[in-house]
């Protein structure tokens, strides 16, 4: 039963990402060509509200469903990993038109060839794990 709430949130995510066409290769192309406000509007609205939500959580010490304080671990520091890893991911994002979340939404939407992208992504994560010690962070 504990898993049900995460499935529920995932369903909301899957519906909103597909209904707002954020899972579409066309929309990602439009974004990286600066030819529409659509994707920037989505990300901008989500981040603006997200900043307000996180500030409210911190200001009012809002607890989670189990009564524990909500703690958001800071992201690990490292300029090289963020800029280099980010750039490598960006190449893949523009090529396939999907970031990790939308890959799975696309699968449910009926684009079964996206499973090849997911297999590639798992292999890519394995490659990172294998070379982690040799990479600059």
């Amino acid at each position: 039963m504990k898993s049900l709430k995460f499935i529920f949130v995932g369903i909301i995510f899957g519906i909103v990402m597909s209904k707002s066409e954020a899972i579409s290769w066309y929309r990602i192309q439009e974004m990286f060509r600066f030819q529409s406000f659509h994707m920037y509007g989505i990300i901008g609205t989500a981040v603006t509200l997200g900043i307000i939500i996180v500030q409210l959580i911190k200001r009012f010490n809002i607890k989670d469903y189990a009564g524990n304080p909500i703690v958001i671990a800071p992201k690990e520091k490292g300029f090289v990993r963020a800029i280099a890893g980010g750039t490598i991911f960006g190449l893949g994002w523009a090529l396939t038109g999907a970031c990790p979340g939308p890959l799975f939404v696309n699968l449910g939407y009926g684009f079964l060839t996206v499973s090849i992208v997911i297999i590639g992504a798992v292999a890519g994560a394995w490659l990172y794990g294998y070379f982690q010690d040799k990479l600059p962070h």
Partner: peptide, 8 residues
């Protein structure tokens, strides 16, 4: 594309 996404 998947490799770039996973590794990146």
């Amino acid at each position: 594309g998947g490799l770039l996404i996973g590794f990146g």
